[in-house]
């Protein structure tokens, strides 16, 4: 589908033309664009979300706060801002597995997860996550048992979801830092579970 097409070569020129016209008219400086790219390419990312999940695993009070007022609890860690203004965290349990999608576009919690992967923005995932979530998860190697309820959350422009995966067995006494290493991006979208300590 679409994402696999090579974009036309003139796109690069078109973007340069728009950039140079806007700079000329004083809307922003080229350096400001460099800085924006730098932040999103190198400073944001799923490690932020992993730290949130690890803290919730380690601290029951924080977990309660996170599940009742995720926006505030996440802001407490210093992760807030564009595309993460209103957050909801959904908890995986032995009975419920959660999966996040944005069927209309690509809504995703940037401050905690960074920018979404290509597959999250592409038609196959957006189309099928809501109609065949188990099939989609199998494509990621995740086989959710039939007796576990699957809940799919469709993100939108205003509200962004983050999955709190289950804490893996054998992690008693782990520090928050050690726990955070087990929390992957995919486990916070719901297409994977957290890593087991032996996998790290």
């Amino acid at each position: 589908m679409g994402a696999h097409h090579e974009p036309p070569a003139e796109l690069s020129t078109r973007v340069k033309a728009i950039e140079s016209l806007l700079i000329e008219r004083g809307y922003f400086a080229a350096e400001a664009l460099d800085k924006i790219v730098q932040i999103h390419e190198h400073e944001l990312g799923p490690r932020n979300g992993a730290k949130v999940v690890a803290r919730a695993w380690a601290d029951q009070d924080y977990k309660k706060w996170l599940l009742t007022d995720a926006t505030a609890a996440i802001a407490d860690m210093g992760y807030s801002g564009a595309q993460g203004e209103d957050m909801v965290v959904v908890e995986n349990t032995p009975d419920v597995h959660n999966l996040v999608v944005c069927t209309l576009c690509s809504c995703y919690p940037w401050p905690t997860l960074g920018l979404p992967p290509t597959w999250y923005k592409a038609p196959p995932y957006r189309a099928r996550a809501v109609i065949d979530p188990r099939g989609v998860m199998k494509e990621f190697g995740l086989d959710v048992p039939e007796d576990v309820e699957v809940r799919v959350w469709d993100s939108n422009a205003e509200l962004r979801y983050l999955v709190m995966p289950m804490r893996p067995a054998g992690t008693e006494g782990f520090s928050e830092e050690e726990l955070a290493n087990l929390v992957t991006r995919d486990s916070m979208i719901g297409v994977a579970v957290a890593l087991s300590p032996s996998a790290v």
Partner: peptide, 23 residues
């Protein structure tokens, strides 16, 4: 796109880059 048929498998690429072109 929610619920549409016919788009095929998801095909995640574990090594993908954040941006593929400077533009």
């Amino acid at each position: 796109l929610g619920g549409m048929h016919g788009f095929g498998p998801v095909n995640p690429d574990p090594n993908e880059k954040l941006f593929n072109h400077e533009w």
